[in-house]
Amino acid sequence: MFLQTAVQPMNPQAQETVFSFWKIMFHGNLFANVVMITVLALGVFALYIFFERLFYINRMLKINDINLMNNIADMLQEGKIQAAVDYCERQNTPEARILEKGITRIGRPISDIVSAMESQGQIEVSKLEKNLNLLASVPSLAPMLGLLGTVIGIIMTFFAMSNAEGSFSPKTLSEGIYTALGQTATGLAVAIPSNFFYNLLLTKIDKFVLKIQHLSTDFLDIINKPA
Results as ranks from 00 to 15, higher is better:
Phe2Ile: 14
Ala6Leu: 14
Gln13His: 09
Gln13Ala: 12
Gln15Tyr: 06
Thr17Trp: 05
Phe19Tyr: 05
Phe21Leu: 12
Trp22His: 06
Ile24Leu: 15
Met25Gly: 04
Leu30Thr: 14
Leu30Ile: 15
Val39Asn: 08
Ala41Asn: 07
Tyr48Pro: 05
Leu54His: 10
Phe55Thr: 10
Ile57Glu: 06
Ile57Gly: 07
Arg59Gln: 13
Arg59Gly: 15
Met60Asn: 13
Leu68Gln: 01
Leu76His: 00
Gln77Cys: 02
Gln77Val: 00
Lys80Ala: 05
Asp86Gln: 02
Asp86Gly: 03
Arg97Thr: 00
Ile98Val: 01
Leu99Glu: 00
Ala116Thr: 02
Ala116Tyr: 02
Gly121Thr: 00
Glu124Pro: 03
Val125Ile: 15
Lys127Arg: 09
Leu128Glu: 09
Glu129Ser: 10
Asn131Cys: 08
Leu132Pro: 04
Leu135Glu: 10
Ser137Leu: 09
Val138Tyr: 04
Pro139Val: 01
Gly146Trp: 04
Leu148Cys: 04
Met156Thr: 14
Ala160Pro: 03
Gly166Trp: 02
Ser167Asn: 10
Lys171Gly: 15
Leu173Lys: 11
Ser174Pro: 05
Glu175Phe: 07
Gly176Ile: 06
Ile177Ser: 08
Ile177Asn: 10
Thr179Gly: 15
Gln183Glu: 13
Thr184Met: 11
Ala189Tyr: 14
Pro193Ala: 09
Phe197Arg: 05
Asn199Ser: 11
Leu200Glu: 12
Leu202Trp: 09
Ile205Ser: 10
Phe208Asn: 08
Ile212Lys: 07
Asp221Lys: 06
Ile223Arg: 00
Lys225Pro: 02
